[in-house]
Simulated scan of single mutants.
Amino acid sequence: MSVFKREEVLYPEYLPLNLPHREGQIKLISENLSLLLKNSKPMNIFIYGPPGVGKTAVSKFILREFEQYSGIKNIYINCWQYNTSFAVLSEIGISIGAFVSRRGWAKDEIFSRIVQTMENNRLNLIVVLDEVDQLIKNDPNVLYDLLRIENYTKQKIGLIFISNDKYVFRNVEDRIKSSLNLEDIEFKPYTFLEMKDIVEQRMKEAFVAYEEGVSALVAAKAAERGDVRVALEILLKAGRIAKDKLRVEDVKKVIKEENNPRAQEIMKVLREEEKRILEILDKPRTTKEIFEELKKSIKISRTEFYRVLDEMIKKGLIKVLGKENRSSLLYKAL
Rank of each mutant, 00 (worst) to 15 (best):
S2N: 14
P16T: 15
P16I: 09
R22M: 14
R22D: 13
L35N: 05
L35K: 13
K38R: 13
K41R: 12
M43S: 15
M43L: 15
N44K: 07
Y48P: 12
P50T: 15
G71W: 07
K73Q: 14
I75F: 02
N83Y: 10
S85E: 01
F86P: 01
V88S: 00
G93Y: 10
R102C: 02
G104S: 09
G104T: 03
R113S: 14
I114M: 05
T117Y: 04
M118R: 01
R122P: 04
V127M: 04
V128H: 13
E131W: 09
K137G: 13
L143M: 12
L147G: 11
L147W: 14
I162F: 11
D165Y: 14
Y167H: 14
V172K: 03
V172N: 12
I176E: 01
I176G: 03
I176Y: 05
I176M: 08
L180E: 04
L182R: 02
I185P: 06
K196C: 11
K204L: 13
K204G: 04
V214H: 05
A220L: 15
K221H: 13
A231C: 13
L232C: 09
I241F: 02
V248R: 09
E258I: 06
Q264P: 01
I266L: 12
I266G: 01
I277H: 01
I280Q: 13
K283N: 12
F291W: 08
F291Y: 15
L294W: 00
S301R: 13
S301P: 14
E304L: 11
E311H: 06
E311I: 04
M312P: 01
G316D: 09
K323N: 11
E324R: 13
E324D: 10
K332E: 05
L334D: 02
